[in-house]
């Protein structure tokens, strides 16, 4: 039953992804500059430009180019980065683990802190803890991530010196052998606890910066969900039948309250991707975000488009996952669709 549900949701996502392919294809063709000219360089003769145009298939009809493009995209061939002169897919594969580390750290922070705080705020409705948490939520969503990053760096790295300023690992510590690509996992697997400790220290500020917006959002929606649920008749019944208070709140009330939170977590991912770009750039985090910013600044179109496409796919996958989790939490939804 779950399998069919997932299949159905995937099928719905296909048209959007196809549209994304079309969009990215058109975008690169809309660039004012002639790609053949750009690739040939300034000193190229018209003959050389024509040669390059033919070599890259740029003189074929548009729809034919699109098919070639799609074929390549499916095989994860995104061409070469104008900056690094390596295959874009290779660059991305190398940088992906760092971004995943950061994203999961931020998400973990947001959820593991956000949900309990949201419940806490709801239980202390209209008292001081509730007001304080609501203010935090308002700030968290309104604040500019890049500014928070700079402020945190200012305070914790520059003034207090408690945490490192940038990067993934201190220069003095040699990185562990690369097994998975993730610094933390590799350190753990090779027993390099010095690198692990240092890596974790470097992860703190970026993860907090990235997770702040999500934390604010999750606190807000969990609180609302819990408040709504507490009004329900079944909560009265569960109290009347002597359910233990802690279990009542954390098991029976919470599961009903998280529908809105789960939606938020799905949307959160989009925010983490977008925010990740800026946060990685500021903290010099060697992930896809800083790769993207670099591509922007150097006008590396191939990279930009590859990243856009990849993000679209990830986003679609996250949305499907969100729906599945919704269905698992509330079985009524699975029966409906």
């Amino acid at each position: 039953m779950v399998f069919r549900f997932v299949l159905r949701r995937c099928a719905l996502a296909v048209p959007s992804l196809f549209g994304l392919l079309v969009l990215t294809f058109l975008l690169i063709r809309l660039v004012p500059s002639d790609p053949a000219v750009v690739m040939a360089g300034d000193a190229a003769t018209p003959a050389q430009i024509a040669e390059i145009r033919h070599q890259y298939g740029l003189d074929r009809p548009l729809w034919e180019q699109f098919i070639v493009y799609t074929g390549k995209a499916v095989r994860l061939d995104f061409g070469e980065s104008a900056f690094s002169h390596r295959a874009v897919s290779l660059d991305i594969a190398q940088r992906l683990p760092a971004t995943l580390e950061l994203t999961f750290a931020a998400m973990g922070l947001s959820i593991l802190l956000g949900v309990p705080l949201g419940v806490f705020a709801a239980l202390r409705y209209n008292q001081w803890p509730d007001f304080a948490l609501r203010m935090l939520s308002v700030f968290g969503v309104a604040v500019a991530a890049f500014w928070v990053a700079i402020m945190l760096q200012l305070l914790f790295a520059m003034q207090l010196g408690w945490l490192p300023l940038r990067g993934e690992l201190s220069v003095a510590i040699p990185p562990p052998t690369r097994i998975t690509g993730s610094l933390l996992l590799d350190s753990l697997l090779t027993g390099r606890f010095d690198a692990l400790r240092d890596g974790l220290a470097h992860l703190v500020l970026p993860a907090v910066t990235l997770g702040l917006g999500g934390l604010a959002s999750i606190v807000r929606f969990t609180r609302a969900g819990v408040l709504d649920t507490l009004q329900q008749d079944f909560v009265t019944y569960e109290r009347a039948m002597g359910y233990r208070r802690m279990r009542l709140i954390w098991r029976y009330v919470l599961r009903n309250s998280v529908t809105a939170t789960i939606t938020q977590i799905g949307l959160l991912f989009g925010g983490l991707i977008a925010g990740g770009v800026v946060v990685e750039a500021i903290y010099d985090w060697p992930g896809i975000g800083s790769y993207t910013v670099n591509a922007i600044l150097t006008g590396d179109h191939q990279v930009m488009l590859a990243v856009t496409l990849m993000i679209g796919v990830v986003y679609a996958a996250v949305n499907i996952l969100t729906d599945v989790v919704h269905g698992l939490v509330d079985p009524r939804l699975m029966d409906q669709t």
């Binding site: 329900q232 008749d233 079944f234 009265t236 019944y237 569960e238 109290r239 009347a240 039948m241 002597g242 359910y243 029976y252 599961r255 009903n256 939490v329 509330d330 079985p331 009524r332």
Partner: peptide, 20 residues
Amino acid sequence: RGSRIGFIPQDPLLSLNPVF
């Protein structure tokens, strides 16, 4: 509650937790 005094509520649909 629940042990020496039992309670039968008015609306059975609303009184049962829908997701358990």
